[in-house]
Amino acid sequence: MPVVNWLKRHLVVIAGLLTLGYLLLPNVVVTVFSFNKPKGRFNYEWQQFSTDAWKDPCGVAGMCDSLSISLQIAIWATIGATLLGTMIAFALVRYRFRARGSVNSLIFLPMAMPEVVMAASLLTLFLNLGAQLGFWTILIAHIMFCLSFVVVAVKARVLSMDPRLEQAAQDLYAGPAQTFLRVTLPIAAPGIAAGAMLAFALSFDDFIITNFNAGSTVTFPMFVWGSAQRGTPVQINVIGTAMFLIAVLLVLTSMVIGNRRNRQKA
């Protein structure tokens, strides 16, 4: 039975590809429906092909404003979390100090906590302090939950770094500052970049914690959430599709460039 044998041998591949399909199906739907011209307020059923939404992506009141707020928060949260997280990661890998265990738990806990718990407790704090909810409270919250992920990403990279490289730099007349700038930082850069990208993605896409601590400020995910109750404009799909395409293109270009560079040098 050649067919049965073939199936048996490729069972894993078939199952894996089916899962991949499951993962990508919603993106396909989002893309297709960005060309829809819905009848009612909701964009859930296919009506007819149209490029209206692509021609006027900001044609919905408030959407592009929310997008800009989300981008600003994501950028600042990335900078803040990357800076603080990188410092912690270096301290954890490079130094011995007391209370190491407690520090590790304090970093691990935010990742092991359901978002809704963090969101609710942070809101309790802000309410108790009488803080004005808005841009700043969102930013504070985002830096908080991105921090741990940056620490993990940077820590992995710094751990795999040979400490002799820094010693070699010192041996070759580089003082502590020079050693850090010329050797440590460039070598840790991929880890820091990975942490920063993760922080950006987490912050940009966060809904639950933002929803609790935003006050009347509307980020892009909150706009989408609101429109799910009021009516979903096609422009949402346009933004979703554009972000997906930009991400894939960016990654693929960097991969192609990386490959070519490796091939040239080898």
């Binding site: 040979d162 490289l165 010693q167 070699a168 010192q170 041996d171 070759l172 007349y173 580089a174």
Partner: peptide
């Protein structure tokens, strides 16, 4: 180390 007139060839070289 960076002020000593001494240089080292490290184990597994530690090339940057």
């Amino acid at each position: 180390p960076y002020k000593r007139p001494v240089n080292t060839v490290f184990q597994s070289y530690a090339l940057f």
